[in-house]
């Protein structure tokens, strides 16, 4: 098992940095080329969410990212330092109880419905994207913060 750990300042520009690193490590782990875009986007969404939460509550704290390459899975863990009750923003609810599913978005017929859902916190486009892209997603809320764990299948013969 190989692990890459990264912590970065809660700045929007470093979400891109995180995406670049994730893409490089995922490629090395043997992730299928077709899945690379999905990994990059899902991890970027998780990092964007963490950065936004930090900027509201603890801008000096870094966002943490772990990339774990096992024999058959490529796992990514994005951790923020904002207690769950605050991460969804004003009016939002805590993950995972308030986690909007990708299906929730499909039920919205108009931009007004969508805007309302976004405004009242009942829908989070970023989480909807993560749910739609990651093969396996787990969101854990602890007093220390929110952890989003995602994983995808990787090639068994990943290089060391």
């Amino acid at each position: 098992m190989a692990t890459v750990e990264l912590s970065f300042s809660a700045l929007p520009v470093h979400v891109r940095t995180a995406r670049l690193i994730v893409t490089a490590v995922a490629r090395r782990s043997g992730i299928d080329q077709d899945l690379l875009d999905e990994v990059r986007l899902a991890v970027g969404e998780a990092c964007s969410r963490a950065v936004a939460a930090h900027r509201r509550h603890c801008p000096d704290e870094p966002v943490r990212l772990e990339l774990i390459d096992t024999d058959h899975r490529f796992e990514v863990i994005v951790s923020d330092s904002v207690p769950g009750d605050d991460t969804a923003g004003p009016g939002g609810s805590a993950a995972p109880a308030g986690l909007p599913e990708a299906g929730a978005a499909r039920g919205l017929e108009t931009a007004e419905d969508l805007e309302t859902a976004l405004d009242d916190g009942s829908m989070d486009l970023g989480l909807a994207v993560i749910e739609g892209l990651a093969e396996d997603v787990e969101i854990t809320t602890t007093p220390k913060g929110v952890q989003i764990r995602m994983s995808w299948p990787s090639a068994p013969a990943a290089t060391s």
Partner: peptide
């Protein structure tokens, strides 16, 4: 694909 996942193809 991102528009489809989020249902925005309807919007």
């Amino acid at each position: 694909k991102i528009f489809r996942i989020t249902g925005l193809t309807k919007v």
